[in-house]
Design a protein around this nucleic acid. Structure first.
Lengths: 262, 262
DNA sequence: CGGCGGTTTGAGCTAGTTCAATGTCCGTGG
DNA sequence: CCACGGACATTGAACTAGCTCAAACCGCCG
């Protein structure tokens, strides 16, 4: 169950490096680490591969919360790599109601824009302050061309993303509010764990309760009550934006969470 | 709005050719037509490409309703091409409750098994009697290798499938039962239209009300009532397994259905 | 004719919504 | 240092969409 990364854990690296423009990017590969970590998990990378990825840091910029990185209907011509913070894909109804379709966590990347010149069927926006690399199409294609292992890892990452999307359909479609929420937390634990952003079952959740609500197809009021129930039952503890999974086993049982598909 | 295929419509081709083992495959490319139709829509195919696809007919077999084509957790080593009937991806909970994750309609194909040797995160099963080609990995890879346009079309088809999956998350997550159902019908109209299986707003829906229910995260009782409401309001007519969209415009407005992403 | 698989209907119930008030934390300006 | 305001979290209370269970009904096939 415990899938924490074997590397030394730099606690809070996500938040304090995402705090804003005045905060300089940390030394060397401090943030690309998430990307390296994640891609390496899909296909082992060589030193050259890693160096090339570290080189992408030049494209990184701090970005405020609730910034739209790519509008629906728009053709984008760069790849996005999340280095810190939470971003997400989302759709909006005419009524204003929003549905979050996927989380983009540190190490995740999104290259639909760069690879295929299709207009996006959804928007991409930051859910928290983020540090994000916008890699121009040419540079990105060049990267993939020169580094087949990276290309492979990226392709596998896409498969994992598809699997997650299916998991979300199932989650929203056939689970109760409590179970859905538990499932989401399990997913976050696993995904953040795989990039070393979990320490002792604890991680930062730089979201508003509105975000899980729009993720899970629930009202924020209900999410609030569900979180209280999870706390009451001793499954989690949550103070501010710091979440701790107290009973991962029981939580994943409640959610029928299947680890391993990433 | 009307995206009906320009080719001559062979009404009922889906059902009568999917009826069962005793029913011989129709003359020539009668059923691959759907595949040709669909892929050609993504990337124009040459005569050689088409011939190669027609060649796949040899792998086609009639398959009964509710047959599991690929079990969850299993590694599959062939690509599946649906030539007639409805199949789908699905997940099941321990309680037995099922969620349908995607429909595989005639012309759709599913090559995760053949391309990457990963165990499936979901099952694939027929929802109606089908005619399906199981193409062995080697033959499939060979096909893609020799026919780059087919490979391109397949890749684009995958993008469209991903977009559909996102649409489903949004559908289940933020729409009411009525809207969800309307949206699903719009999707079916569009997808079946693109393979010429819609005639005069009418198409075969070889499903039980349980299937839409498990698709939309509703109970079959509720789906029943929703369908009645749609009929009452003159949006659709439904007799047996024959569905007619009477007011496509109003229906897609109700569902906030965005055509065009396929 | 009888039965099976599916649809339809009814009635009661509950998970989750909506709306609105209240509480809490935190940053800002005086 | 404190008052103020804004953004979130929490609570309460009324309401409702959709669920469950169970009975009837319908069409089809053997």
């Amino acid at each position: 169950m415990e899938t924490f990364a074997p590397t030394a854990l730099k606690e809070l690296v996500v938040t304090d490096s995402a705090r804003g423009p005045e905060c300089p990017a940390p030394e060397g590969g401090g943030l690309v680490r998430t990307l390296l970590c994640k891609l390496d998990g899909f296909a082992p990378l060589t030193e050259q591969d890693r160096a090339a990825l570290v080189g992408l840091t030049g494209y990184a910029r701090p970005i405020e919360r609730h910034t739209v990185l790519a509008e629906q209907e728009c053709v984008v011509d760069h790849a996005l790599i999340v280095l810190a913070g939470f971003a997400g894909r989302s759709k909006r109804r005419a009524s204003g109601r929003r549905q979050i379709l996927a989380y983009l966590l540190p190490g995740d990347l999104c290259d639909r824009g760069a690879l295929h010149g299709y207009p996006l069927d959804h928007a991409i926006e930051t859910l928290s302050p983020c540090r994000i690399a916008k890699v121009p199409r040419a540079a990105y294609l060049d990267l993939l061309g020169r580094h087949p292992r990276i290309a492979l890892a990226v392709q596998r990452a896409r498969l994992a993303e598809e699997a997650t999307a299916r998991e979300w359909v199932a989650n929203i479609g056939m689970r109760s509010g409590l179970e859905r929420t538990a499932h989401l937390l399990c997913e976050l634990l696993e995904r953040l764990g795989s990039i070393g952003a979990v320490s002792d079952g604890q991680f930062d959740l730089p979201l508003t309760q509105m975000d899980p609500a729009e993720t899970l197809g629930l009202s924020s009021v209900h999410v609030n009550r569900v979180l209280q129930a999870l706390r009451r039952d001793g499954l989690i503890s949550l103070r501010g934006h710091r979440l701790r999974i107290l009973a991962p086993r029981r939580l994943s049982q409640l959610a029928e969470f299947e680890a391993g598909y990433l």
